[in-house]
Amino acid sequence: MTPGTAAVSPVGRLRQVDLRRRWRQLNAESRWGLVILALILMLSVFVPLLSPNDAYEFVDLPLQPPSAALPFGSDHLGRDLLVRVFAAARLDIALAILGVSVPIVLGTFIGTLAGTTRTPIAETVWDGLVNALTAFPEIILVLGIVAMVGADVRGLLIAIWISRWAQYARIARAKSLALRDAEFVQAAQVLGYSQLHILIRHIMPNVFSEALAYALSDFIFIIVIIGGLSFLGLGVNPPTPEWGAMLAEGRLYLRTEPWLILFPGFFLSLTASGVALLARGLERISKGEDD
């Protein structure tokens, strides 16, 4: 701890104690998840920042094995694989967060709206709609939308947004069905707030925590599908560093230069595993299961 930081002030110390207590409440899985994610985030910030090499720049002969100068070796065009792997980490994580954030807001809003209207016919239609949208095999629906909108990053994000909101809507509807008769909602109604105000300010915040829990597992799916479609050449395109696209390039050298797929693939899996461990750990805590 460096002197003069927040730890010295009483508030800072309190916050530190609070953090430490939170940490102690976690189980092994969620701790591992947090450690992994912190590691990946730090590496993805600092490696491209501190490395002398650029992700697009040719620095050595192509297909050099890992060495002291190039810890991950060089790729088929002679670019530094280490820098590219962590430049890809930045892009993939940013895209996945962007991919999760729109469906969670949209789905939660639509779901609470559906949960607070009280017409039986709307419920039947609603069930069918959500069931139909979630019936399509996920990757096939995303591919179908990408085929129409365009095989690039924009198309990929739009496809994710269109195909992922329904699950959040389903969760939000179930939760708001239970909440719509709660006393604090009735109180807000008696006070004369508008329906929309009650929806956004009183019901949605309570629904959001459950949606966030689902968002963690959805994040895994989305980061995998971003990599998957880029792997198929239908998402992020080379020369932009992206894990899936790098795997597709490295696949051609599988026999002779396997590190070309091992490094990007490992860090993609590690990122997704970190989120998976965190999600699973938190789920078990909320269920009250011990280790």
Partner: peptide, 24 residues
């Protein structure tokens, strides 16, 4: 315990990576 952790890791590993590793 190993099952719980291993399951989380495997679930998160994308098939296009595990497939290539298995081919390897």
């Amino acid at each position: 315990h190993a099952f719980q952790i291993g399951a989380s890791v495997l679930v998160a590993t994308p098939v296009f990576f595990s497939g290539l590793v298995l081919i390897l």
